[in-house]
Amino acid sequence: MVGREKEIKIVIGAGEYNNNPGWVHSQEEELNLINETTWDRMFPHNSITAILAEHVWEHLTFEEGVQAAKNCYKYLKTGGYVRCAVPDGYFPDEEYQNIVKIGGPGPKDHPAASHKIVHNYRTLSNMFEAAGYEVTLLEYCDEEGNFHFNEWHAKDGVIFRSKKFDPRNQGDKLLFPSLIIDAMKP
């Protein structure tokens, strides 16, 4: 398009999923959230419009999470955002909490085996706010386990493990929700 910059939108830790066609899909080996050298190789500062991370930040300690958010901040344009989804520490289901707990429920090759934190809406918001972002809660449970949903759009990044898109969560019963935020660089 004439007179319009190409938007750069990336998915961190994309795995085998391609829920966001047209986005740059990355793996930890090529784009590591806490290793700025990997970012410098791929992107100039202030060049990225959107970053999507679905079930990635729980594999970082709180301190690593703040550092990762700061790294993303350097590469986001003003008005750019991180859409981040993690397991929800306030979701009131014992089986779910056992699956997402620190260290995971089973063998070393289970995805949750490397979980270092189970976030709730306060810890995740605080982490991104500490890095300078303005946070909007999209899907989350509060301290009493009540689920809250604020409308969000797939064009801004699809989170599969959500009330909106996960077939396990259709109807009135949630089986596997995520805590989802948008963290915007002001």
Rank of each mutant, 00 (worst) to 15 (best):
M1G: 15
V2P: 12
V2I: 15
E5C: 12
E5R: 14
E5W: 09
E7F: 12
E7D: 10
I8S: 05
I10V: 14
I12E: 06
A14W: 02
G15S: 00
E16W: 15
Y17C: 13
N19K: 09
P21S: 01
G22W: 04
V24G: 09
S26I: 01
Q27P: 00
E28I: 10
E29G: 05
E30Y: 12
N32D: 13
N32C: 14
N32A: 11
L33D: 04
I34T: 05
N35A: 07
D40V: 12
P44M: 15
N46G: 03
N46P: 03
A50N: 10
I51G: 02
H55Y: 02
V56E: 00
E58M: 03
H59P: 13
L60E: 11
L60F: 15
T61Q: 03
T61Y: 01
A68S: 08
A69K: 01
A69R: 06
K70H: 07
K70T: 07
K70F: 02
N71H: 07
Y73E: 00
K74M: 07
K74F: 12
L76V: 12
K77T: 01
T78P: 10
G79D: 10
R83G: 00
C84E: 01
C84L: 03
C84G: 02
P87H: 04
D88T: 05
D88A: 08
D88M: 06
Y90P: 08
Y90H: 10
I99E: 14
V100M: 07
K101M: 08
K101L: 06
I102D: 09
G103F: 03
G104F: 06
G104R: 05
G106Q: 00
P107C: 11
K108E: 15
K108V: 08
D109Q: 13
D109M: 04
P111C: 00
A113V: 05
S114D: 14
S114W: 08
H115T: 06
R122H: 14
T123P: 11
N126S: 08
M127L: 04
F128A: 02
E129L: 07
A130F: 00
A130L: 08
A130P: 10
G132D: 01
E134G: 03
E134R: 04
V135N: 08
T136V: 04
L137D: 03
E139W: 00
C141M: 10
E143W: 11
E144K: 12
G145E: 01
G145Q: 06
F147D: 02
F147Q: 05
H148S: 05
F149P: 09
F149D: 08
A154F: 09
K155V: 15
K155G: 07
K155S: 15
G157L: 03
I159T: 04
F160K: 06
F160T: 02
F160M: 09
S162W: 00
K164P: 05
F165P: 07
P167S: 08
N169R: 10
N169T: 07
Q170T: 12
Q170D: 06
Q170R: 11
L174D: 10
L175R: 14
F176C: 14
D182W: 01
P186T: 04
